[in-house]
Design a protein around this nucleic acid. Structure first.
Length: 180
DNA sequence: CTCTGGATTGAC
DNA sequence: TCAATCCAGAGG
């Protein structure tokens, strides 16, 4: 599963002259029509991206307040994406804190909305190429042996029971479990 | 054009 | 526990 491989990869955002980056420590997988929580199930407009070629970004404004960053994972024609939920800051922490308007903290990019705000990601990054654009995902610089845990997804109202959420065990930047 | 849901967050 | 806040889809 690609969601698992993404853990430990580094997400780099270059906005103007500011570079912010972090290690991906938490992801969630979203599937095609058979996944009731996937946007493909109730948001046809997102289908073009879901079914598009892998390696592109799918950015979505949620609750009118927060953005969510997804990576399209599958070859063209096959729906599937991974929601990036949390980052462990590795570069540009002060810039993240400035964008967030909060003090620097390991949890500055913990949670989908926090993450996108910290990296300055907006709707205009929707559909961007994650291999060449100002938003890039790199393989782990130093493949560190980590424990990957998996469990139910968070914050959704459908198919919550599917164990499609992955995170790095014990990492400080993983977002805390919430209930609904 | 109006109505409304939603993969969240942080303050009460 | 609850309100903030905005896009796109659905319906008129």
């Amino acid at each position: 599963m690609v969601a698992r491989e993404l853990l430990g990869c580094v997400l780099v955002s270059r906005h103007a002259r500011v570079v912010t980056a972090g290690r991906i420590v938490e992801t969630e997988a979203y599937l095609g029509p058979e996944d009731a929580a996937s946007h493909t199930a109730f948001r046809p407009g997102s289908r073009a991206l879901f079914y598009g070629e892998g390696g592109h970004a799918y950015v979505y404004l949620n609750y009118g307040v927060h953005y969510c960053l997804n990576a399209i994972t599958n070859p063209a024609g096959e729906p599937g994406c991974v929601l990036i939920r949390a980052l462990a800051p590795t570069e540009g922490l002060p810039a993240m804190a400035r964008r967030r308007g909060t003090p620097s903290s390991p949890r500055i990019a913990s949670g989908p909305g926090n993450l996108t705000r910290a990296l300055g990601i907006t709707l205009r990054d929707n559909g961007a190429d994650l291999t060449t654009g100002r938003l890039v995902i790199l393989p782990p610089a130093t493949p560190s042996p980590v424990t990957v845990a998996c469990g139910p997804r968070i914050g959704i109202t459908r198919s919550v029971e599917l164990p499609l959420r992955f995170w790095i065990e014990g990492d400080l930047s993983v977002s805390g479990a919430r209930r609904r």
